[in-house]
């Protein structure tokens, strides 16, 4: 057995031994420029204030700027160094922040070809995320629905989606969710997948076609309950959260609850609305000052909302641990 295979076995054993490894949260969105890196960095800082060891990973491959949101100029080690094999332990590329218990795996000086991560390189990162020494790992993902992004997203136990009150962002959010769900169902065993495509091509008895995931699941539950439960488990493994960012008009605060309602009907899944963040020009000021927003403007409404969201999420994690 070669060394590579041995280390892979190691990984599998590790995963089996410590089911309660680091919590992984992924921050994603359908559209770019809706504040993923801002939200990731702020969530991370807020978590560290609760005494948690946090490592943030910039997986916005080819468009990385999480380090800037954290006020770091030029991190000396980046993800590329790990992908290329320059460092063999993923913990060696973590760069520490000076004044907080926060590490960052940056993409600042990534190679120019990083956006086209190869399949085996993606697997290498995916497998080793859980080996990062931390209480919480935050994945700052790229916009859009590439397989890389979807796979990183689905690896997380919490998926946090950022949306802004703008039709283009909302459309892309739904598209992103559809891609995420489809990708999850692809993980089902072969027999189940076969039945799924059978049901999908089936002529629906009442002239109503299968248009929504919720409707699809209902039909599966009726025809193949055992497989449907498997699928349901796959879909519900990850808790999804929604943040409405850059709110300017009071009426925009309705958007989050409304999206949770419509998603429930369409996907048949509960998406937890975490809250909204007001549009704040000081986010740009903080970036220019090269300071994290939460440190620069701790009294701003956005900072306070972030703190509340993190407290709520920690509370949920705590309750999950108890049960």
């Amino acid at each position: 057995m070669s060394v590579v295979q041995l280390s892979q076995l190691d990984n599998i054993a590790d995963a089996a031994l410590s089911p309660s490894g680091p919590h992984i949260w992924a921050v994603a969105s359908g559209k770019g420029g809706v504040g993923k890196s801002f939200i990731s960095s702020s969530l991370g800082l807020a978590l560290s204030r609760h005494g948690k060891r946090v490592v943030m990973v910039d997986l916005d491959l080819g468009g990385a700027n999480l380090h800037t949101c954290l006020g770091l100029l030029n991190p000396e080690r980046t993800l590329s160094d790990y992908v290329s094999g320059k460092y063999t332990n993923i913990n060696d590329i973590v760069v520490e922040m000076d004044d907080a218990n926060i590490g960052i795996i940056s993409g600042a000086a990534d190679g120019l070809d990083i956006a086209n991560l190869k399949h085996f390189q993606k697997l290498k990162i995916l497998r080793n995320l859980k080996r990062i020494k931390a209480d919480y790992i935050i994945l700052d993902l790229g916009a859009g629905t590439s397989f890389n992004t979807l796979d990183f997203f689905n690896e997380a136990e919490r998926g946090i989606i950022s949306v802004v009150p703008d039709p283009t962002s909302i459309e892309n959010t739904y598209r992103f969710l559809k891609c995420v769900m489809t990708r999850k169902l692809r993980e089902a065993p072969r027999q189940t997948r076969k039945l799924m495509s059978q049901v999908l091509t089936l002529r629906h008895s009442e002239s109503r076609k299968i248009r929504t995931l919720a409707c699809f699941m209902t039909t599966m539950h009726q025809l193949h309950p055992k497989h449907a439960r498997l699928m349901q488990g796959e879909l519900e493994k990850q808790q999804l959260h929604l943040i409405v960012n850059m709110v300017q008009e009071p009426v925009d605060t309705d958007l989050g609850p409304s999206m949770a309602t419509t998603c429930q009907k369409y996907f048949g899944l509960r998406i937890n609305y975490l809250g909204h963040l007001n549009h704040d020009k000081q986010v740009i000021s903080a970036l220019r000052q090269r300071r994290p927003f939460l440190t620069a403007f701790p009294q701003s409404r956005a900072a306070i909302h972030i703190e509340h969201m993190v407290a709520a999420l920690l509370d949920r994690d705590h309750q999950n641990n108890l049960s």
Binding site: P165, P167, I170, E171, Y174, T212, L255, P257, S258, M259, T261, T262, C263, K265, Y266
Partner: peptide, 12 residues
């Protein structure tokens, strides 16, 4: 959520 000009509903 399902009012006629709802941003959240029209694309689903």
């Amino acid at each position: 959520a399902y009012r006629t000009d709802s941003l959240a509903a029209y694309s689903l």
